[in-house]
Design a binder for these strands. Structure first.
Lengths: 199, 199, 199, 199
DNA sequence: TATGAATGAGCCTTCATTCAT
DNA sequence: AATGAATGAAGGCTCATTCAT
């Protein structure tokens, strides 16, 4: 294995370990020592790849968010119908978190972190998902598919994102037991047709 | 002023300062020293009222959540119509946070904290709002007001809560500028009638 | 003992220990732990009195230099004859270092530190002794006591200081054995009458 | 270029870089990394030429002092008159430092280093200049050129060295501006004829 | 021989908590 | 009850040194 490959492998190993530990203990309660042990490198080695603990955290967050971004785009783009593509986006998002629930914790913290502006939250990407869904929803709205008319595109995005986040939180809070997939049609129905029955 | 009143006043003062500082810096980055200064008591005095830093944080969180609970219940109970009472709940929630945005940070962190099991998040209350809205929504569902039929009461709660949280986050992220109140009718419409227009 | 007195005692104790350890090991090789042990206080206590290691070092240096300043002024001022007052200054300086040779090391390092401008050497006082001797020597020169005429007052100061430093260094390098006092008349003679014999 | 020459070139390059960096930052604050960069060799390569950081520092110091030694001897030996040869020694010393002021810092630190007994100061040479000037001065004294009679040869050496060091320090402290050369005759006069005028 | 990535001992500093006053 | 000085455990980070390539 070349030295460049080995370095890349180290970097991956550290990031993976960092995701694991940060997700379990949060930024402040994570000790660099834990990450070193988990990734089986010396403590000092981490500093060859990341300037400091904050930089490592930022790398974990931004990598996770970027991966989510790519997954969503890749999955929802293949669908032509914009309404279906939103469903595809939900599935993609869920499977991304299902594959590694640690990612969800990072995702969740990302929101609270951006709300309070401390040093470590200087993650450049802001409100990523919103910007992902926005074009699609704006397209739907432009085509006149969406109501009420006084609602702006952003309102639909917020509603859609809020519902998903809520169900994701529900899923995460009860590991395994909650069947998120079964809820997808319901989520779609509620978002599209509302909840009030007028006979 | 009696001794008891004076003590209670100290306690209030500490809690108020703690809310302020915890909201701005988070649990780990808050120094007890800051709270002592802000509340104008000695550092040691805090320990006469709270066992340790975690207990103080828990007190701040549970008090905030309980206040929110009471505000919602008080406001939504006076309305007879269950649908209207949900709107009342939204307004009550927003005004509660508007009065002191620090509360919103505590509320937001509360969610991420419960996701990761560290010591400080041993806040006994779990998913408070959910349990607030649940009875009302269950009542609506029982009365056959809600669709789709395959959705459980919890699904409505999750959807409703998610949308609100999303707009609250939007409001908080852009202090002042965002007009949350103007969005309440839209939130209600989206939740009740959905977003898809079928002419 | 009042609390203020106790604090002052702590401060003194820390400074004394710091002088001891800094003199023996130099700034970089001194561990705060050593000072804590030597002064019998907890490591953290030091930080109640000095912002950091650099501030402590600066305090040691400036205190030592100021004490030296005062000792020299006090001793040489009582003598009316400016020539005799220089001898008095030598004696005062020597006895100051003799009382605690650690001071000499601080004094010595002070010179090399000021030569190279690093962070820790940001001691405000510059070339202290020089400024002490200068007025006296300037006075002598003004009165026409000194030669050669083309020499400036500063030149005499430099020469005088240089000779003293040289003998002090000699004394310090061979603890105990070197009899500095016996050399004072010789120093005075060399400085005043020179070294070349012209029969 | 032969292998041996190439190795010697590496050694020279490292020593030169080390002089540069050690002079600017002192022993403790110098990072081997800096020297490696400055000398354009790998960090590991340094260890092929010097056992460790201390050995490298010692090599820099002893080389500098030896060069100074040789320069002084070479310059002062060509003069027959012992008094003139002292002046020649001053000039040689000054030009040596003027050529590379970094050397002066090493020279200066050498004195404070020998005062405190740490590991790095285990430089074998002790009080180098002294031993340079001593034979000449001893010769002068033996010939009856020097006074006062109760002064030993060492006293003259110390005085002479002290004055020079003082003026060198003055020169170094104000790079460029101070005209050391102009002071040489004054230094010589003060040393030889003293400072007190007796009409 | 040259390299620089890996290593971990070591240290400064912070801060929750204690306790004498 | 209130205070804040004292404490020391704990952790992020540095950097001399090693060693596989």
């Amino acid at each position: 294995m070349s030295i460049v490959e080995k370095k890349e492998q180290h970097r991956r190993s550290i990031l993976k370990a960092a995701l694991f530990v940060f997700a379990r203990h949060g930024f402040e309660n994570t000790k660099l020592h834990q990450i070193a042990v988990k990734s089986k490198v010396g403590k000092g080695t981490i500093y060859n790849y990341f300037r400091d603990k904050v930089a490592l955290y930022q790398a974990v967050v931004s990598e996770t968010m970027e991966q989510l971004f790519h997954v969503i785009v890749a999955r929802s783009d293949i669908v032509d119908n914009p309404l279906q593509s939103l469903t595809a986006a939900i599935i993609a998002t869920f499977e991304f978190f299902e594959e590694s629930p640690d990612r969800y914790v990072i995702y969740l913290r990302y929101f609270s972190d951006t709300a309070t502006s401390s040093k470590k939250s200087k993650v450049p990407i802001v409100f990523l998902n919103l910007s992902i869904f926005e074009p699609k929803i704006r397209e739907c709205k432009a085509k006149g598919f969406l109501k009420p008319p006084e609602a702006e595109a952003e309102d639909f995005v917020l509603s859609f994102l809020g519902i998903i986040n809520s169900f994701l939180f529900r899923w995460f809070s009860s590991r395994k037991t909650y069947d998120f997939r079964a809820k997808i049609p319901i989520i779609a129905k509620i978002f599209s047709h509302g909840t009030y029955k007028h006979d």
